[in-house]
Amino acid sequence: MQKDFILITLADDDEDDRMFFTEAFDELKINTIVNTVNDGVALMNFLQAPETILPNIIFLDLNMPLKSGIECLKEIKSNTRFNDIVIAIYSTSSSEDDIENTFVLGANIYIKKPNNFGKLKEVLSEVVTLNWQYITSGLNKDNFLLRL
């Protein structure tokens, strides 16, 4: 079953955004299992729970209460168990600082939340269908920020 489905986890404190996210995947014809958590602490608890099957891609909002996306990113990257997980930053901000920071910390791609549902679907579909093995081998700051 795991081979046929892409496991996706979204950590975002905004209810509306979680809804857009799941609805977008619902409409996309890709075999995915989407799981959402409400904040950074919940994400880390989920990842560290022994019964959890680790996701393929984590979409990480930066601005979250209790534990920010940046903190989560650091924790994930410091644990070798999570080495294979692709980290996609999923934020409203497109500030140079945030992009730079997350790139340095080892995130795989940076997505600025689109303001159009159609665009959201496009972006998510692009990220999920990317050949990550190929991308991660040639990490490059120029295509770190996803532009469509």
């Binding site: 905004d14 509306d16 955004d17 857009f20 409203t92 901000s93 500030s95 939340k113 689109p114 303001n115 159009n116 549902f117 159609g118 959201l120």
Partner: peptide, 17 residues
């Protein structure tokens, strides 16, 4: 300006919906 983007983005996304 940054925080104003957040609700606006949602409004626009809902509009597109």
């Amino acid at each position: 300006s940054h925080d104003l983007q957040e609700p606006l983005r949602k409004i626009q996304t809902f509009i597109s919906r």
